[in-house]
Design a binder for these strands. Structure first.
Length: 734
DNA sequence: GACCTGCTGCGGCCTG
């Protein structure tokens, strides 16, 4: 490997020597040859802090060190904060090479942009949105300054796969290759990513037209020790004021206080409002015990300054600090390792549980995960859904899938992303001024990433875009922007493809605490919790979109908006397996390790007993009083399909947590109805989506401009599965 | 009964 090291630029070698590193890491050595070759794509997949960034930049900077004109490396990041981090980290290396590094995003300095605009060279660090804005507004400059581009590197690539933003990014890269005349001689793409499931599928997500081969480098995983405990809590039927029946959440807060005080931890509470609630209660406990508060909330609606203060406090490691957080602390930001991770309520996916677990485990100590799960105390009026202890069993299933099967949800790469496709049509027309339809199709769908769009879809979409004046066709046949298209593309909000709700700022005195989506009801004089503290609303300014508050006692966290969640088939099937066998423990050698505390175990046994008593293993429909419940143990597509089929047949039903409740019905009626449907032609996904109102189908940013037929087809594909449902009925009810 | 990310150009105000 000595030879590999010597292939780096002499000044890079000198920089390495100055760092005092004993040796290059394995992935860093292995990346040198393929990057210097410059004739292939590269996927570097390794856990955080494995040195992925250096693995790319050391050889890539060596390769462009002699290049004087134009950018040599284009670095793309999903976060502005990461660009700032990376800029600092590249400072000394670029100084050694006398190489320019330009951070380019919405908040970076105009002076730096000006300088790079005049004299582009070295490394450009940018977000997809800023790159979009450059292509649309300054295509001539882009063509010149990227003429000798050698590498495109994408950081946190896993965050892009299967998303609207990821689709936009791939389209941007194709457009960049097109504008620089590099379609037939593509610019190598390097993806840096956390460890991914289904690694063999990733190269296609990096370059859908396969015009360059892709090599993959993964770090040899060192197995670390993991300690897991699941604890059960009981939510009392009556919560008394006398403290004998305190709520499950209060019990959980006491436990967090006991476990976390004196060291640093992360508590993931799944929603912003629960995050706020728990942070406030822990703050109260500190006050009651007259000790300094070391519990603080962290989520996306909190003001940047408040978040950064907490991040800095975690990083410094001088004061014990526990963050009660949402996924904002799951990945990306460098906060160092914490002593343990606590999960309150079941996580939404195994892959996010895995990321969270990875945040704990300091040098030479194990990763520690605790899951604190509450279930309702039962009465004779209780619903079977409560009795089964579904949330607890879901948590157990997820722990098993993660630890025993080493499985987590792969990204969904099958979606059409029509809203982003429409966005890219507008962006390309805005960039070129005018374009022929066949050029558009070739660029976006054949060379670019929109492989799922057929000519038929494309024609239908273009014609509708003409009707709503997004575009118009000239006599020559060329497409140009219409009035509405001009309006949208000329406003700065155009560059991002994802949707964000309008928000109110929350202001205390002269300080902004954060933001709230406008759809939550906030009234004057109401008491709220925000930023882990209690406030009273003094005034609301509808025009300026500001809520004024003052400090006070008491209050509830504001309601944040949100959609339902979707659980993968495999998680539900693991739950079913656990119920059927009554066994959740993990086998290690000849032993079975129990990772659940006494109350949790008791709750599990209640659920498993009810499952047996109702014989859900053999009878998926269960009648209780006037209502019936369908347990499919399948993912949401099948559950949604069954629900809509029954609604179309006149039943009143709803689903929650994968269980369908059918009101005023009995088992035989439901069974007969579904078997009858399965024996005839089941309506297809598009037909099922027609049952829903237009409003329910408007989800992504530009959905409102899509023809309803196309939107319905797209929605149907996302939400339903007719064949799978037919099979489920035949397998389980006949 | 969920979470997160990003974008412009310019006018006005403040500080050194």
């Amino acid at each position: 490997m000595i030879e590999e090291y010597q292939r780096l630029d002499k000044r890079v070698q000198k920089w390495l020597f100055n760092q005092g590193w004993p040796d290059l890491r394995e992935i860093q050595k292995r990346a040198i040859a393929p990057i210097l070759a410059g004739d292939r794509d590269l996927l570097i997949s390794a856990s955080t802090a494995a040195g992925k960034t250096e693995a790319f930049f050391l050889p890539a900077c060596s390769a462009i060190a002699e290049e004087e004109n134009g950018f040599g490396i284009l670095y793309i990041s999903p976060l502005k904060a990461l660009i700032n981090d990376q800029y600092r980290r590249l400072e000394s290396l670029s100084e050694m090479l006398d190489m320019e590094v330009t951070p380019w995003h919405g908040d970076s300095l105009q002076s730096k942009k000006k300088k790079a605009r005049k004299n582009p060279s070295g490394i450009l660090l940018i977000t997809p949105e800023s790159l979009e804005s450059l292509l649309v507004r300054e295509p001539g400059w882009v063509k010149q300054s990227f003429a000798s581009l050698k590498y495109i590197v994408i950081d946190e690539f896993h965050a892009f796969i299967g998303t609207e933003r990821g689709k936009q990014l791939l389209s941007l890269l194709t457009r960049l290759e097109h504008i620089t005349g590099r379609i037939s001689n593509p610019i190598p793409r390097v993806a840096l990513s956390a460890t991914l499931g289904e690694l063999e599928k990733v190269p296609l997500s990096l370059r859908p037209n396969k015009s360059l081969p892709c090599e993959t480098i993964t770090s040899s995983q060192h197995q670390s020790t993991i300690k897991v405990q699941v604890k059960g809590y009981l939510e009392p039927l009556d919560i008394m004021a006398d403290d004998t029946h305190i709520s499950a959440e209060q019990q959980i807060c006491h436990e967090i206080f006991r476990l976390c005080r004196g060291d640093s931890h992360l508590v993931f509470a799944n929603s912003r409002s629960r995050t706020e609630n728990i942070a406030a209660q822990l703050g109260d406990l500190c006050e009651q015990q007259v000790v300094p508060n070391e519990f603080f909330p962290h989520h996306g609606s909190l003001a940047k300054e408040l978040r950064e203060d907490l991040e800095a406090r975690l990083q410094k490691e001088t004061l014990p600090t526990t963050a009660i957080c949402t996924m904002t602390l799951e990945l990306g930001i460098d906060i160092g390792k914490v002593s343990s991770v606590i999960q309150v309520t079941a996580p939404h996916s195994v892959s996010s549980l895995r990321q969270r677990l990875g945040r704990s485990g300091r040098r030479n100590s194990p990763s520690i995960l605790r899951m604190l799960i509450s279930e309702n105390e039962l009465s004779d009026k209780s619903n079977i859904v409560d009795g089964l202890r579904l949330e607890l069993v879901q948590s157990l299933a997820m722990v098993r899938l993660l630890i025993v099967n080493n499985w987590f949800e792969p990204a969904d790469t099958e979606q059409m992303h029509l809203s982003t496709f429409l966005h890219q049509i507008l962006a390309v027309i805005a960039q070129w001024g005018s374009v022929r339809a066949d050029q558009l199709y070739s660029l976006l769908c054949e060379q670019g990433p929109f492989k799922e769009i057929t000519i038929q879809h494309f024609k239908q979409l273009l014609s509708h875009m003409g009707t709503v004046q997004l575009i118009q066709q000239l006599n020559s046949g060329e497409l140009v922007l219409g009035i509405e298209g001009e309006r949208i593309t000329n406003f700065y909000t155009f560059y991002a493809v994802f949707k964000t709700p309008e928000e109110f700022r929350i202001v205390a005195g002269s300080k902004t605490l954060g933001t709230l989506p406008v759809d939550s009801l906030i009234l004057k004089d109401q008491h709220i919790i925000f930023g882990g503290r209690r406030w009273k609303v003094t005034d609301i300014d509808d025009n300026k979109k500001v809520i004024y508050v003052t400090s006070t006692k008491g209050g509830k966290p504001p309601k944040f908006s949100g959609n339902g969640m979707s659980i993968h088939d495999r998680v539900r099937q693991e739950m079913f397996r656990i119920y059927c066998t009554g066994e959740y423990r993990i086998e290690v050698g000849n032993q079975r390790i129990d990772f659940v505390n006494n109350l949790g175990r008791q709750l599990f046994q209640e659920g498993a007993y009810l499952f047996k008593e109702a014989d859900l293993e053999n009878h998926p429909i269960y009648q209780s009083g006037k209502h019936s419940y369908i347990f499919t143990w399948m993912g949401d597509k099948v559950v949604n399909t069954l629900t809509v089929l029954l609604i179309r047949s006149g039943f009143v039903c709803s689903n929650f947590g994968g269980v369908i409740e059918v009101q005023n019905s009995n088992v035989d009626d439901i069974k007969n109805c579904l078997i009858y449907l399965a024996n005839t032609e089941l309506p297809d996904e598009t037909e099922l989506a027609r049952t829903l109102s237009l409003q329910q189908k408007l989800i992504e940013k530009y959905d409102e401009y899509l023809p309803e037929d196309l939107l319905t087809e797209c929605y149907g594909r996302k939400a339903f599965n007719s064949m799978g449902t037919k099979q489920w009925i035949l397998d389980n009810l006949v």
